[in-house]
């Protein structure tokens, strides 16, 4: 009796217990799978990123030429950095570059994405065309661009000349060299950000547009009050990535101008490369790299703050 009485409730009690057990077994299984999947990348990340970065931080307090063991020099590298006018020039150059590159990048990739966000069949062709530069080798592209931008014989200035516009010397002049690099890096990078914006655009619920249309919003009003605010997170993402990428400008400056003319396109990463691999001063180069890292972190945090305050 007791048994029968106890029976059904026991079953009743047992059933959720079983479910819980099953669920926890399931989640344990999932957790195990998760760990299994996450381990290889984490191990690789640890070995190939975290360890070298930690090593580089350590090296920044030493004098190290690779051939002889590092010698502890404390803050000497950082003290030297404070008096290194060339490094400050590179920082000035890269800030100028970011100030030109990032806003135009946002505007151009958003414009392209909006223009190509339609279901017409030809759109995929255009999307491909704008994406092709992304998969082009930066070095090869920069070499071709340098020729295209030649002041006297390059096609760009020939075209400008056709319309009666005297083209500048582009990479040959210290006042336009950085602008040339901005143009080339924009051409090269706009495709990938366009794709991110396209994905963002396709995530905006259509009912918002329907509501806007019902309220009689025009094209511009719809963009300003629906599209742009809905893309806020996408914009934050694109801005952050563009900024971080921009601060590490190297290939184009190396190929197109060698940092010149007049050091006008010398960038921090270029200078770090020179210091490390041509002058064998790994300690000092690490100090430069860490300083750049801190600056990038600071700028990224400021960028995030600004975007967050947009929210309110």
């Amino acid at each position: 009796m007791t048994r029968t009485l106890a029976g059904p409730p026991a079953v009743g009690r047992a059933s959720p217990g079983h479910a819980k057990q099953r669920r926890s077994r399931m989640s344990r299984h999932q957790a195990r799978a998760g760990v299994l999947f996450a381990t290889p990348p984490m191990v690789l990340f640890l070995i190939f990123t975290v360890l070298p970065v930690a090593g580089a931080l350590g090296l920044s307090f030493t004098s190290y030429d690779v051939f002889t063991p590092p010698q502890w020099t404390g803050l000497q590298n950082y003290a030297r950095l404070l008096e290194d006018a060339t490094f400050f020039t590179t920082l000035k150059n890269i800030l100028l570059y970011c100030a030109m590159f990032v806003p135009v990048m946002i505007a151009a990739s958003l414009l392209l994405a909006v223009a190509l966000n339609s279901r017409l069949p030809a759109m995929s062709v255009f999307r491909t065309i704008y994406y092709i530069p992304v998969v082009t080798s930066p070095v090869a592209a920069a070499t071709v661009w340098t020729w295209m931008l030649n002041s006297h014989y390059g096609p760009i200035n020939e075209i400008l000349g056709f319309f009666g516009i005297p083209g500048p010397a582009w990479v040959g002049d210290s006042s336009t060299a950085m602008v040339s690099i901005v143009l080339v890096t924009l051409w090269q990078g706009v495709g990938s950000n366009m794709l991110i914006y396209l994905a963002g655009l396709q995530n905006i619920p259509t009912h918002l547009y329907e509501a806007a249309a019902l309220d009689g919003a025009g094209r511009w009003a719809t963009f300003a009050h629906v599209t742009w605010p809905q893309l806020r997170l996408t914009t934050l993402f694109v801005t952050t990535l563009s900024l971080i990428g921009a601060f590490q400008l190297f290939d184009q400056a190396y190929v197109m101008t060698k940092g010149g003319p007049g050091n006008s396109t010398l960038t921090p990463v270029y200078q770090i490369y020179e210091t490390a691999f041509n002058r064998l001063q790994m300690g000092y180069a690490s100090a430069q790299a860490f300083t750049l890292f801190l600056i990038i972190v600071a700028v990224t945090v400021i960028n995030m703050r600004i975007n967050r305050s947009d929210e309110t």
Partner: peptide, 20 residues
């Protein structure tokens, strides 16, 4: 943009790690 340099710096740092 900077892949080569990062790789080189990593290689150098790795070399240090190996020595240590």
């Amino acid at each position: 943009m900077h892949a080569t340099l990062t790789r080189r710096l990593a290689a150098a740092a790795l070399a240090v790690a190996t020595v240590i």
